[in-house]
Structures are given as structure tokens and as C-alpha cells.
Simulated scan of single mutants.
Amino acid sequence: MRTFIKTVVLPSLFIVAVATNVSAQSRRSTTTKTTPVKSTRTVTTTTTKKSTASRRIPSKKVTYKKPTKKVVSVRNVPNRAVVTYKNQNYYYANNKYYTQSRGRYIVIAPKIGFRVRVLPTNYKRIRFNNYNYYNVNGTFYLQINNEYEVVEPEVGTVVYELPDDYEKVVIDGQSYYEYANILYEKVQVNGTRAYEVVGVIDVE
């Protein structure tokens, strides 16, 4: 009987123990491998966008490199069209928007919600997320029925030039470009310099 135990039972128990240990190591190895996968996914998600700017940026976090903005005004605006927005009249001519103050017309960045019936001839169409945006000197339009409404572009929208009167700003130590409260970051697209929309400044 002792011989039987030594020659059959003990080797069988040894084999079962080894198999159990191997199985346990295999399970532990599998669990360990899932950790870097999860870590990789997290890193990919957080590093998809290079910039630290989020969708909405409080204006108090934005520092302009120039202390004051140059104000452009003219005495007359020929062939102007009146744009009424929130019970206030604005004026549109020569692809620019104006407000009137003390007998002069002051160039302003268009407000979200302004509508025009005809796009300026120098617009550029930008396809992004199944939308056709029309960009004119930093102003983005979407077609609404038979009109074109000024809208905020989505984060990730790319343009290849900025308006002449853009401004440089700093947010959390990083530099960006701003026009009409839209924030841009300089990027490279197929070796070409471009500017990607990374956020919008909330004006308080």
C-alpha cells in the first residue's frame, strides 16, 4: 500500500499542485497585462489634444500680451446693411461689422447670432464633423434656411490663416491666438502651418 501511495498518489498530487500553480501564474500574468492596456488608454485620451485649453475659458484666466486693443473707426459706411440683434442695430459692409458711437462707425467682431443673407465672396468652406462652416476673416457661419448665421466653431476646426487683427494671449503659461473670443493654437497639417480651434473665451 505504501508503495502504491509513493508511486501513484504522490506523483499525482505533485502534478495537480504544479498545474494549479501554473494556472494561477497564468491568471496573475493576464491581470498584470491588462494594467498597461488601461494605462495606455488613459494616456491616449488625455494626450489626444496637445493644448491645455478646454472648451470654455473664463476671461479672467486670459492675459493679453497687448494692454489695449486698437480701435478702428470710420466716419461713414457706404452701402451698409442693418443687422438687428437683440433689439440693437449694427451695420454690415465690406465684409465687416460696425456699431455706431458718437457719430462714428466702429469696427467690431461679429456677435454670435448675427445673420446675413449673402456670404462675402472671399469665404472659405470648412468641412468638420459633418457641418459645412463658411469662414470669412475669422468669422464662422452656418447656413440656416436661406440665411447664414455667425456661430462658434467646434474645437478641432482647422484654418490656415488668421485675421490681421488677431491677438496673442497667454493661458496657464501657454501662448495662443485669439480673435472674436475664439482661441487658436498653431499646428502643422501635412507640413503646412495651420491654426486649430482649441476653445472659446467666456466673457463675464
Rank of each mutant, 00 (worst) to 15 (best):
V16S: 10
L10I: 15
T20R: 09
R28N: 07
V151P: 10
Y98R: 00
A81H: 06
I106E: 04
N94Q: 04
V189Q: 06
R127F: 15
T40M: 13
R127K: 14
S54P: 06
T20M: 13
Y141C: 01
Y166Q: 09
A109I: 01
K66N: 14
V77M: 05
V155T: 09
G191N: 06
Y85P: 11
V18D: 05
V72I: 12
D165W: 02
T68L: 09
Y176H: 06
V62M: 01
K69N: 05
V136P: 10
I144S: 05
A19C: 07
A53K: 08
S51V: 04
R104F: 06
T34P: 07
Q88W: 04
R125G: 05
V77N: 02
K69L: 08
T40Y: 10
E149Q: 13
I106L: 06
S54C: 12
T3W: 10
E167P: 13
Y98T: 00
Y98M: 00
V116N: 01
E178N: 14
S59P: 14
N135D: 12
T3I: 13
V9H: 05
N87D: 15
Y123Q: 12
K70Y: 11
S101Q: 13
F140T: 02
K6M: 14
T30F: 06
Q25R: 09
P58V: 00
P163T: 03
V203W: 14
N135V: 08
Y141W: 02
V169T: 01
K61Y: 11
E167I: 03
Q88S: 09
N190M: 07
A24T: 10
Q25Y: 04
I106M: 03
Q174H: 13
N190Y: 07
V136G: 07
V151M: 03
I112V: 10
T99G: 09
P36N: 00
S26V: 14
T45P: 08
Q100K: 14
K111I: 13
V8H: 11
D172M: 04
Y177A: 01
V72D: 11
G199I: 02
Y176R: 07
V136D: 08
V107D: 05
Q188R: 15
N129E: 13
I171M: 01
L142E: 02
K66M: 08
A180D: 07
S29C: 06
N76G: 04
E161D: 12
P58D: 00
S23T: 11
V83E: 03
P163A: 07
R28M: 07
V198Y: 05
Y179S: 04
Q143C: 00
I112E: 05
K124M: 07
T63A: 09
T84L: 08
Y92S: 02
E161V: 05
S39A: 15
Y123C: 07
